[in-house]
């Protein structure tokens, strides 16, 4: 318990220091980091309960973005409210993907699980490529480009929604897991599938619903991102990687840790970007940390 307290103190100290010395990087990193954790939370949910690393996670996000783009373009649907439409569609897509592919190999070797999500990821990317070509698409809404002035610094106002949304989704997941009947069943399945089956939980159903629900949650991130990104087919790949990176850093089952590590890495990325001449290196922050964290964890396990 004391260790966790120390971590929190360290985290807020870091926030304060960054805000003091690099205010632009502070706001930018806070916003980006929240977005990363917003995308990472559903992945962590699937990883924690189904025990499956979904390599197609980011590509489902891309699909959600394209759906939002079409809604905006054809029906003039406001991006933020398009979540109402995208979430059910993604829920169905997640359900279909799970039933058609993943469920059939769930019992076999773990390599098959990874390979099949890899196959799903490729299929999704190329499907998007085929349908909408690789031309980048943009959505413009006036409210998304407004900026506000905080202590003499101009920062984008729209991006603060990311922070609110990531905390909101975190609370939603924790609420579902702790308070609802389904959530408690899912929690039990995540801890011990065999034991859960013995006490009469329908493990198959829990896996299906968890996967579909987590896929539907990607819609929240997608609908918020629509006005602020160029949408292209390969957008999702780095997000899968970053999401896994955050999950690995926080440790399995540590949902608040994902938001904290997301913000930490977002800040680190923003600081690297703010150094003149080194902005191209910012992509390395995530991968460097990923390799470092995983290697350290693996090393510790090996030593033990």
């Amino acid at each position: 318990m004391k260790k966790i307290m120390n971590l929190y103190i360290l985290f807020f100290l870091m926030l304060f220091l960054v805000a003091l010395f690099r205010p632009y990087a502070f706001f930018y990193g806070l916003q980006r980091g929240s977005l990363y954790s917003l995308v990472a939370l559903p992945l962590a949910l699937i990883l924690g309960i189904v025990g499956l690393l979904n390599l197609a996670h980011g590509d489902l996000l891309t699909l959600g973005l394209y759906l939002g783009y079409i809604l905006f373009n054809q029906l003039r649907f406001d991006p933020i409210f398009s979540v109402i439409v995208i979430a059910p569609i993604l829920f169905i897509i997640g359900f279909v993907v799970y039933k058609l592919t993943i469920e059939r190999v769930l019992k076999s070797h773990h390599l098959n699980l990874l390979l099949i999500t890899f196959g799903v990821s490729i299929t999704l990317v190329e499907f998007i490529n085929l349908l909408w070509t690789s031309r980048p698409r943009n959505v413009y809404v006036p409210y998304a480009t407004k900026s506000i002035n905080i202590f003499g610094i101009n920062v984008g106002a729209y991006e603060f929604l990311y922070i609110a949304a990531s905390i909101g989704v975190l609370l939603l997941i924790v609420f579902i897991l702790k308070k609802t009947r389904f959530g408690q069943a899912a929690f039990a399945v995540g801890q011990n599938p065999k034991g859960a089956a013995i006490v009469g939980i329908n493990v198959k159903l829990v896996y299906t619903i968890t996967f579909s629900l987590a896929t539907a949650m990607i819609a929240i991130a997608a609908s918020l991102m629509i006005p602020r990104v160029s949408i292209f087919p390969h957008l999702g790949g780095p997000f899968t990687m970053r999401s896994f990176c955050l999950t690995a850093m926080a440790g399995l089952g540590n949902l608040p840790g994902i938001v904290l590590s997301g913000i930490t890495l977002g800040l680190a990325e923003a600081i690297v970007q703010s150094i003149p001449g080194y902005s191209g290196w910012s992509d390395l922050v995530f991968f460097g940390v990923l390799i470092l964290v995983i290697a350290l964890k693996g090393y510790r396990r090996a030593v033990r």
């Binding site: 690393l53 990874l114 990687m241 991968f287």
Partner: peptide, 25 residues
């Protein structure tokens, strides 16, 4: 020496990340 201490998905995703690292370099 570092990466091969990992197993399963940790090894897979780290090698996937290595490709991106090499590309950024």
């Amino acid at each position: 020496v570092a990466v091969l201490r990992l197993r399963e998905m940790y090894f897979a995703i780290t090698t996937l990340a290595l490709t991106s690292v090499f590309m950024v370099l």
